[in-house]
Structures are given as C-alpha cells and as structure tokens.
Simulated scan of single mutants.
Amino acid sequence: MVIQPDSEVVNGRVLLGTGPPTREELLVYYPARFTWEQLKCFVNSGDLGLLKRDKKLQKRYNAWAEGIKGKYGSMVNYLLNYRLQWGQPDTLSLLGSALDESVLSKGTREPLDPSVSRPLPPIPPDAPPYFAADTPKKFISIIQNDWPYSVPPEVEHALIWTRLPIFHPDLIPSSIAARVEQDGLWGFTGTTTLPPSPSLLPTYLPALSEWGITTDKLIRSAKGTDEEEALVKRAGSHIDAFVRQRWVEDEWETAWFVNPPRLQSVLGLAHIHVFARHK
C-alpha cells in the first residue's frame, strides 16, 4: 500500500484535499495561529490543553478518523497494524523531518490485516522498567504528527511512542503524584535562556481566542516548594535526556511535553510530543 498525498498543485495553486495534510496545505489553508515564543509559553504554563489544532484541520481529522475506524475497527488498531513502525524511521509521513532526510522509501509499508485486532505483545522480563535515553529501539516508534498542532511552519511536531512506561513509581514519588496526574511533564532543550514565563499568558492568550481560552479556564497546579519542583524535574529527566540525544542542541531547539496519565489515549502505550525548531 502506498500513501499518496490527497492534495495536488495545479497551475501553481495548492488544491485542498482530504486525509492527512501535506506541508503545502498546512501553509496555505491552515496557517499557524501562534508563534514559537507563544508555543513555548503555553507549554511552560502548566496547562497542556492550551496546545491546539486548527479548527478546520480538526474537522478534517474527524472525517478522516471515521473512515479509519471503519477500515481498521479503531484508531488503536490503525496505530498498531499500520502507523507505528517499532525501531524503524518514519517512512509514512507526508510531512517528513529534517532528521530523516536519508529515508528514501516513503509510504511503502504494507498494512497488516485490518480486520484482525492485534494487542501489543507482552513486555519481556528483561526489558527496562521505564522509558529512558537508552531505551532499546524495539520499544520506540518516532513519527511525525500527521495532524500537527497549529505550530509555526519552521517547527516540526514529532511524537515519540513507547511501549515502556513514562510515569513510573521509581520516578514519581507520592509527594508529586497528584500534580503529575493533573499536569503531566514538560521541558525545553537547545537554549541557554529560560522559557517564556507563564506570567506572559495574559499577553499571549488572544492567540487562542478562536478556541475560547481565557485565564479563568486554565487548569494548572500552583508552583510547589523547591523540593517538589526538583522532584518534578527529575521525573522528566529521562525524557529530557532522550530529546537532547536525538535533537542535538547545537542544531535544534525543542519544547516537549507528555500529557498526564489520565489523558493517555492508548492502553499500554505512552507518547511524548516534541516541537523542534532547526536553528
């Protein structure tokens, strides 16, 4: 099965298609609603619900998802039987990444039988207890987000899917468990300056007016003690190390986040969002 872009260019004009968008479609029909600085501020705010997809693109996604569910039975089956490529580079994305320029065979994967539901195989006894910078590739699938959030055109939106836990008792002591359960984890790499302060949110929130976001609707924990803040940073340290290893800091600046456990969408899998801007 070969994925072909549903959009095409005729007489220099990008035609609007269906299914996952091309980069040209994103530029023409779904332009970014917020800047890189605003995006970093939203990530740093503690309310990861501020990261949004263009409303028109969301509508297109919803229509596509219905077709995918009809073919595969569920979005989980689509991910497991087709989209995720454990231990391999992403050859299916229409958007691509500057990190995968050496991948020449785009869109050439044959899907497994979509009528057969395939649960994830059990984690072997000798597997690491949780996701870390040295996690074996067979437990990881790094793909481009086919339906990216409304990020600037120079920013790549990647997803790191992993079969190993990200939230683990050895990393998250009980004193910060409730906070992580509500807020998730986030961090920044490739910069010597502090990320934009959440105090800037009143200035940046108008960029989210289309979604009806106001200050009183934010959901985030109050700043903890120095000890609690250190524990939260430690809880995300393995993710941070992995991101720094893949997106080398001399070349990339990133903002990453992991939704809290209550918002993880696929049982047995976890994923990390990475917004990466090439310097």
Rank of each mutant, 00 (worst) to 15 (best):
M1C: 13
I3S: 10
Q4C: 13
G17V: 05
P21S: 12
E25A: 09
A32D: 01
T35W: 10
E37G: 01
F42M: 06
F42Y: 14
D47T: 01
G49N: 11
D54S: 10
K59L: 15
Y61A: 06
N62Q: 14
A65S: 14
K69V: 14
Y72M: 10
L79E: 08
L84I: 05
L84N: 01
S93W: 05
S102E: 14
L104G: 11
P111Y: 08
V116G: 02
I123T: 14
A127M: 04
A127Q: 07
K138W: 04
I143A: 04
I143V: 15
P148S: 04
Y149I: 01
R163L: 04
P165S: 10
V180F: 03
D183I: 07
D183N: 13
L185Y: 02
G187I: 05
G190Q: 08
L201A: 02
P202K: 07
P206K: 06
G212S: 07
R220C: 11
R220G: 04
T225Y: 08
E229T: 07
V232F: 09
R234F: 14
S237L: 09
H238M: 02
I239H: 00
A241E: 13
D250Q: 15
E253L: 03
A255M: 07
A255T: 01
W256D: 00
V258N: 03
N259T: 05
P261V: 04
R262S: 13
Q264Y: 06
H271L: 05
H273F: 06
V274F: 00
R277Y: 08
